[in-house]
Design a protein around this nucleic acid. Structure first.
Lengths: 244, 244
DNA sequence: CGGGACATTGATTAAGATCAATTTAAGTGG
DNA sequence: CCACTTAAATTGATCTTAATCAATGTCCCG
């Protein structure tokens, strides 16, 4: 689960350690064929790939060949419409499964772009499907994985549909904080990996507005912002604000 | 596929006809256990249920017991947050599978509320899962069904995040028009089943704004609006506008 | 150390929200 | 079936929030 606890450098420069795989959130999908028992102690050695900052894991229109388990780093998911409008729909971090957007049609509908140098495990689509066929538990887990994205987007829809700029930013920070917490990092002080531009786009507003809201939140002593360093000073107030 | 072509009254007052099931988009999920061949000619006789206008198919928090295939009528999907803010995330029509939001946690995260008297087929969760276990093709189809919702929400996120009121309404009307077309109805003239309030909420704006946009679109001869009767007069212009 | 991307703050404008007043349609019960 | 009640829709006047335009500051990296 807590793949994020393994530092990128450790993973990147050494051959994959079995222990790293056994604690992986995707262990169930990753087992070699014919070894369908949930207690399998020898997960397959998956190929891994470093994605440098600004590079993409995959792009809109690419055929769905692989899923990618994000092991370290972070990513932005971006949809683009026919006239070039862009929307960042999520900022996945370590532990996230990337590529699910390709399931509907067999082609990806988003770009997945690294916000920092990141590491992914490559899970060939065919292998994962075979595992789901052989292990119904894995198939169900996979369903839940897709459904999780759906529910996440529902919540974001409510944010964009109903909330003010301040409420959106507050909710965004609470969300990042919880992501950090789930990855074993401090939920009260962290570094934002994305630009103000990215945050603004994600929340359906403009850069200047994000800056101003940050300033106001700092003024009100809810947070301490210094460029991308963020410290939460009053979670309760922030959480209250984020509920609209 | 085109369940909407079967009139509600026919379905409601007669025992289910095999033909109705065989042309159903969920036929694959619906087969009785032990009859896993895709060519099965005798689909199970599913229980059906009339949902009257304003009633709910299921509600947030309900345990996921059944999926519901909407056979006729229409529905609004609504998410609510902790402080009572509401967002309508979709307006499914005949052919849609309802209940997928419950997959992640086993409990529904939305309300599904009938916009008019509607008819659903009840597909017990356990039965559908058994079919997916026995028929991997059904399982894959099911994955795509969930992923479809996810991608749909992505597109709506782009709408709410990047577009003006006019562009949103234009896109909404194009969407309804395509829904109508896919159900075998005229895509150029139809009745809106939802209130202005519902439309406004869905598009992240206020009722008055929806009214004003309708008026402007009519002024510009793109549509003819008379209460809930809607006629599209210039699809090209409308489609162009909807792209942002 | 210099260039370019990113971030911040101020001044002004504009899109859409809010407030208010009718009009119209849809139920409901006598 | 009609009178009455209530929900839904429309339009106008005004206000607020966030967008836009503009200028400057800061940091990272080659």
């Amino acid at each position: 689960m807590d793949a994020a606890l393994v530092s990128p450098s450790n993973i990147a420069w050494q051959p994959a350690m079995p222990s790293a795989c056994q604690t992986c959130s995707a262990e169930r999908f990753c087992r070699p064929v014919g070894q369908a028992e949930p207690s399998s102690m020898f997960p397959v050695d998956r190929s891994r790939k470093v994605i440098h900052r600004g590079e993409s894991v995959y792009r809109t229109g690419d055929a769905l060949q692989n899923f990618f388990l994000l092991r370290s780093g972070s990513v932005k998911m971006r949809v683009t419409n026919s006239s070039g409008l862009e929307q960042i729909t999520a900022f996945p971090v370590a532990g996230a499964m990337l590529g699910l957007d390709g399931i509907e049609t067999g082609h990806h509908t988003c770009d997945a772009i690294a916000l920092e140098d990141s590491l992914v495990c490559v899970l060939p689509f065919a292998d994962l499907m075979r595992n789901c066929r052989d292990d119904f538990g894995a198939a169900q887990h996979f369903n839940r994985l897709i459904a999780h994205d759906t529910n996440q987007y529902c919540r974001l829809l409510l944010t964009l549909g109903c909330m003010s700029a301040e409420e959106r930013v507050a909710g965004f920070l609470i969300g990042i904080s919880e992501q950090m917490s789930a990855s074993g990092y401090s939920p009260m002080a962290f570094t934002l990996k994305m630009t103000r531009e990215d945050i603004a786009n994600h929340l359906g507003m403009k850069v200047e507005t994000v800056c101003r809201v940050f300033s106001r939140l700092q003024e009100a002593a809810l947070v301490q912002v210094r460029k991308r360093q963020l410290e939460i000073r009053n979670v309760d107030a922030l959480r209250k604000m984020s509920c609209g």
